[in-house]
Design a protein around this nucleic acid. Structure first.
Length: 240
DNA sequence: CTCCGGGAAA
DNA sequence: TTTCCTGGAG
């Protein structure tokens, strides 16, 4: 076996990740993810929130509810342009309209629109099927698996990768599955744990580990293996 | 890497 | 006014 030298920083100790988790939970508190009235609403939200502020997703979901089209059947029937108009506040409305139509068609075709039947499918198989859908990449697929179906899949996102890179917990070049599989291997396979952990990381990314990091008040201050400058050199300084 | 995009914070 | 938002496809 080759030992390229870029290998290591491999398996973090379980205790380390659990201490990070409890630190965040204690400092920030439960985030109550995913806010929705149904698993299907979670799936729709997972599409709508792609690179989009949640505030704007709420407007779109409200419009879907008012138009009474927040179901696989109704989304399957609605005209794509009409759907695009309804979800306009969430941005990328033409793309997302097509993506929602594809998701609805998938649910109807594969599971007769029943999320119970969908949930009964093997997680790995289901993940592959979701990834084949247009507009469903790794993060969206895993968000659906975790937050809509309560499968123990750790959701990795841009915040996660930024936080991990800055603290020296993972290489900046680490791939999506590399981080996901490492966390899943190091943590108990509990959906409730992954649920809260990811939500807390998003909070840290939004409030502290921003493009210009504000480490002074951050709950993760003290958990870094390296300095921010060392881990990610071109980080902008926070303005005063 | 660029495009898709409205909405609101900075 | 500019920047950024719980990404994914070409």
């Amino acid at each position: 076996m080759s030992r390229s030298g870029t290998t290591a920083r491999p398996i973090e100790q379980r205790g380390f990740w659990l201490s990070v988790y409890s630190q965040l939970l204690e400092a920030i508190g439960p985030r109550g993810w995913w806010p929705a009235d149904s698993p299907f609403e979670v799936m729709v939200g997972a599409i709508l929130t792609q690179n989009t502020a949640w505030r704007n997703v709420e407007k779109a979901i409200r419009a879907l509810k008012e138009a009474k089209v927040l179901s696989p059947e109704a989304l399957g029937r609605i005209d794509p342009e009409e759907l695009a108009a309804l979800i306009r506040p969430a941005g990328y409305f033409n793309q997302k309209s097509a993506r929602l139509k594809a998701l609805a068609a998938f649910l109807l075709d594969q599971y007769g629109g029943s999320l119970e039947r969908m949930r009964a499918e093997d997680t790995g198989v289901l993940r592959e099927k979701l990834l084949r859908l247009p507009g469903v990449g790794p993060e969206t697929a895993d968000s659906i698996l975790l937050y809509a179906l309560e499968k123990p899949v750790f959701v990795v996102d841009a915040y996660t990768r930024r936080i991990f890179a800055r603290h020296g917990w993972a290489s900046p070049k680490a791939g999506y599955d590399e981080i996901r599989l490492a966390l899943e291997a190091a943590l108990p396979a509990e959906a409730s744990l992954y649920n809260e952990f990811h939500a807390l990381l998003v909070y840290v990314g939004q409030r502290f580990c921003k493009r210009r990091p504000e480490c002074e008040q951050c709950p993760l201050r003290g958990y870094a293996r390296v300095s921010v400058e060392e881990a990610s050199p071109n980080t902008p300084k926070a303005r005063r």
